[in-house]
Amino acid sequence: MLDIDIPDTGSLRGDLIALTEQVAALVTGVRTRAVVRALASGTGLADDELAALARDFFADRFAREQPVFARAAARGELPPGADPKLLLDLIAGAVWVRAVLRNEPVPPGFAAAVVDGVLPGTG
């Protein structure tokens, strides 16, 4: 799987901004852009193979990101019942739509704007 850094900035907002910047780098990177586009379009691999690769990648990434949410919960930054997977889907989805589906640049400050729009109590 792709190596990712799990940030520990001292706040959920800071950690999510750092993760969002990583997602943006992944979907726009010179070495990864073609794979991301193939994944988004469903071309290049058999449907079952592509689905399995995507499922494994995102499950692995979500598992690695759990410490961000455990720390945030311990600091009282997440309301009871908050769904970390939904937060990540909303945040990463904004990046994918902008960069992959619309084929537009991800401007500076985009990660912070997305996180602030999604994070409970900050939007």
Score class of each variant (00 low, 15 high):
Leu78Glu: 04
Ala94Pro: 03
Leu101Met: 14
Pro84Asn: 03
Val97His: 13
Leu78Gln: 00
Lys85Thr: 14
Arg75Gly: 08
Pro84Ser: 02
Ala94Trp: 03
Leu88Ser: 14
Leu86Trp: 13
Gly81Cys: 06
Trp96Lys: 07
Val97Asp: 00
Arg71Glu: 00
Ile91Tyr: 09
Asp89Ile: 13
Leu90Gly: 12
Ile91Asp: 05
Pro79Glu: 00
Ala82Asp: 10
Lys85Asn: 12
Ala92Leu: 02
Leu78Gly: 02
Leu87Trp: 02
Leu101Asp: 02
Asp89Cys: 12
Glu77Val: 09
Arg71Cys: 08
Leu88Arg: 12
Leu87Ala: 07
Arg71Lys: 15
Gly93Ala: 10
Asp83Gly: 09
Pro79Met: 01
Gly81Tyr: 02
Gly76Val: 11
Ile91Thr: 12
Ala72Val: 02
Leu86Phe: 12
Val100Pro: 07
Pro80Lys: 08
Gly93Lys: 10
Ala72Thr: 08
Leu88Cys: 13
Ala73Pro: 03
Leu87Cys: 01
Ile91Gly: 00
Arg71Tyr: 07
Leu87Phe: 03
Arg71Phe: 07
Asp83Trp: 05
Arg98Gly: 08
Asp89Glu: 14
Gly93Phe: 04
Leu86Tyr: 10
Gly76Tyr: 08
Gly93His: 10
Gly93Cys: 05
Ala99Ser: 12
Ala94Ile: 01
Leu88Lys: 10
Val100Ile: 14
Ala74Leu: 08
Ala73Cys: 03
Ala94Gln: 15
Val100Glu: 06
Leu87Lys: 06
Gly93Ile: 11
Val100Met: 09
Ala74Lys: 12
Arg71Thr: 11
Ala72Gln: 08
Pro80His: 05
Gly93Asn: 09
Pro80Gly: 00
Glu77Ile: 11
Asp83His: 13
Leu90Asn: 08
Ala99Val: 01
Ala82His: 03
Arg75Lys: 13
Arg71Ser: 08
Arg98Trp: 01
Gly76Asn: 06
Pro79Val: 02
Pro84Gly: 09
Leu86Ile: 12
Pro79Trp: 05
Arg75Ser: 06
Ala92Lys: 07
Arg98Asp: 00
Glu77Cys: 07
Gly81Val: 09
Gly76Trp: 07
Gly93Pro: 05
Pro79Leu: 01
Leu101Ala: 12
Gly81Trp: 07
Asp89Trp: 14
Ala99Asp: 10
Asp83Leu: 06
Ala94Arg: 13
Ala73Asn: 00
Pro79Arg: 13
Pro80Val: 03
Leu78Cys: 02
Trp96Arg: 13
Ala94Gly: 15
Pro80Met: 02
Ala92Ser: 15
Leu86Lys: 15
Val100Gly: 09
Val97Met: 13
Ala92Thr: 14
Ile91Ser: 01
Ala82Ser: 15
Trp96Gly: 01
Val100Asn: 03
Ile91His: 05
Ala72Pro: 05
Glu77Ser: 11
Pro79Lys: 08
Val95Ala: 09
Ala82Trp: 01
Leu86Ser: 14
Ala82Met: 04
Leu87Asp: 00
Val97Lys: 11
Leu88Ala: 12
Leu88Tyr: 00
Ala72Glu: 04
Arg98Phe: 05
